[in-house]
Amino acid sequence: MPLDLTDRPPIRLGEADPSRPGAPRRGLDLRPGASLPGPGEVENLRVRGAEAGPDWRNAFRQWLDRNLRYPREAAELGEQGPVTVRIVTGADGRVRGVEMRTPSRSIFLNYYSQSVFRGAALPPFPPGTAEEQVTIDLTINYILYRR
């Protein structure tokens, strides 16, 4: 049976849980000057082959906000956790390949984390990117907040 990946609630990356005042921010922090993770934390974004300055990071963050959704099947089953994917693009942002690097325990999260990038057009990298291909390692932290 094919997965229905339409009409998903948005994943709110990098936001605190509003039901828990003082809760730590979780998810992707792509702000310029964002600190590197501390011991035991996962680095959420690593780009090789191009300069990923603040403008590109902001554009990528906006792309994620528009395109990532929490898979309904995973939410209904209470499945959550990090998934790391490697995305290979051209300097123009066209995705050439996606590969699972670190799966979660959820087949729905794993499948969706790859399928959202397949055939996608991510923000292009700045002019002057010398490499023909850019590699992006991205960790998506799927977190369910219960009310």
Rank of each mutant, 00 (worst) to 15 (best):
M1F: 12
P2F: 09
D4C: 08
T6G: 09
I11W: 14
R12K: 12
R12I: 09
R12Q: 14
G14M: 09
G14F: 05
E15N: 09
A16P: 02
A16T: 14
A16I: 07
A16Y: 01
P21E: 13
G22P: 04
G22Q: 03
G27D: 08
L28Y: 00
D29V: 01
D29G: 04
L30D: 05
P32H: 04
G33I: 04
S35N: 05
L36P: 05
G38E: 11
V42C: 08
V42T: 14
N44I: 00
N44C: 03
R46I: 06
R48E: 14
G49S: 02
G49V: 01
E51Q: 13
A52S: 07
A52T: 03
D55T: 06
D55K: 02
W56S: 08
A59N: 00
R61H: 12
L64C: 13
R66D: 14
N67I: 03
L68H: 08
R69I: 08
E73T: 12
A75T: 04
L77K: 15
G78P: 06
G78V: 07
G81V: 09
V85Y: 05
I87F: 02
G90H: 01
A91K: 13
D92H: 06
G93P: 07
V95E: 11
V95F: 12
R96M: 10
G97Q: 13
G97C: 09
V98L: 09
R101I: 13
T102H: 04
R105S: 03
Y111N: 12
S113L: 11
Q114A: 06
S115Q: 12
F117L: 09
F117H: 03
F117D: 14
G119C: 02
G119Q: 03
A120G: 07
P123F: 07
P124N: 05
F125R: 02
P127E: 10
T129H: 05
T129S: 11
E131H: 07
E131G: 09
Q133F: 06
Q133H: 10
V134N: 06
V134L: 11
L138V: 12
N141I: 05
I143R: 15
Y145H: 08
Y145K: 04
Y145P: 00
